[in-house]
Design a protein around this nucleic acid. Structure first.
Lengths: 214, 214
DNA sequence: AATTTATCCCCCAATTTGGGTGACTTCCGA
DNA sequence: TCGGAAGTCACCCAAATTGGGGGATAAATT
């Protein structure tokens, strides 16, 4: 359960960050930690990617806004070639879409720059041990993304139908799933469209997703 | 940035846990913490729900496997009436589906029972401050759920088409989106079906979701 | 040179979809 | 107890979609 010496010794770290003050700050914080080796620091993604075969890092601290290739693209590129490299995003941005894009791209953690230096060290141990270090606000964002507003104007049954519709099912298939007649499904969908003021499956699903009903 | 005294004083806590040893253990751990008040403990959801109006907790520690109503149903019920109550799941289960069900139901945190007692206290402060306390393994599960296996047999263009199909778009609508002829979309979809060995939109999407391509 | 990818064209028939209208039951809140 | 949702099913209609068959061409990759 506790991290053994084997889990954490010799953790090879690279830093990709265009602001040299922050870059060196992180290096300062990390380089004297036992088990950590700051292999190299880079001011852009391209440089890192050219050297990653040689650097063989376990963990990369990655900024998002970078000259040239941005952090998201960078993560995609890194993960494509070396899926085992752990990327922790370290940025000032807490924008929803950026967070999700980074996680989808393969980031294993997401920290905001206003954290105490201790948190950075912890985060690296955490990701090596199979965790996913996140700032509190980011964790909340991520967890909230699972939760749906259930304040839709649709009835329970209508929501059921809408969710099945979202799976790409046809009316007949939905009917079989919920053990009613195809005509009933049609009626539900007509009512859904009426309530949502839309006239097609596409628009209904777009609205429902925007409002986080599904 | 730092938690002020106003953020954390008088945190009202309820515990829902059927094992009385664990239930009392948690109570012991929490009751002497400054700012914490353990209002009540319950061995099942129903009892808690009957008292929550009176208890007015800020945080509920909730087990999943409970006699009668289970934890997931319990969370739904609590959140429906009092969306502001913070529910932290505390369980032995690390089953993927259970974690996601709990988060979808409205859990604001998810801890496994094998944590140090300190972690429980931290977690309560964390959720009050707008965070989402999770065990490391849970955080990893959650983050991993954003990441897609990009090892599908489909080409880039085919993936694009499949993703738009998953949004409920018609062939014509997809064609407009990617600036090609409807016939081209049809060809892509035929090729997708051939590669995936399916014969309908529903089956293609089901497979793609199962394999986490979309 | 062969394969994959991406683009487009034609034909065909069954199914799906969206809209209109109406009807019956049940259940809940005012 | 009355009215309104909610849920169920029916029938009509026309347009659109879908899935499957057969091609073709050009570019890129292997």
């Amino acid at each position: 359960m506790n991290p053994s010496i084997f889990d954490r010794h010799d953790i090879r770290i690279c830093i990709v960050e265009d602001d040299h003050v922050i870059r060196n700050g992180f290096k300062e914080i990390l380089q004297d930690v036992r088990d950590f080796q700051v292999i190299n620091t880079y001011s852009n993604c391209e440089d890192f990617i050219h050297h990653m075969e040689h650097d063989k890092p376990n963990v990369v601290l990655m900024d998002i806004e970078l000259p040239g290739m941005n952090g998201i693209e960078g993560i995609l590129c890194i993960k494509k070639k070396h899926p085992k490299i752990n990327v922790i995003v370290v940025t000032v941005y807490e924008n929803d879409q950026l967070v999700f894009d980074a996680l989808c791209a393969g980031a294993g953690g997401y920290l905001t720059k206003n954290m105490p230096p201790e948190r950075l060290k912890e985060a690296i141990f955490e990701i090596i041990q199979g965790g996913a270090p996140m700032s509190t606000s980011i964790a909340r964002l991520v967890v909230a993304s699972f939760q749906r507003n259930q304040t839709s104007p649709l009835s329970k049954r209508e929501m059921e139908v809408l969710i099945l519709l979202a799976k790409g099912k046809s009316y007949s298939s939905i009917a079989e799933d919920i053990f009613v007649d195809k005509e009933t499904v049609r009626t539900h969908i007509k009512n859904i469209y009426f309530k949502l003021e839309v006239h097609s499956k596409e628009d209904a699903l777009k609205l429902a997703k925007k409002e986080k009903w599904i």
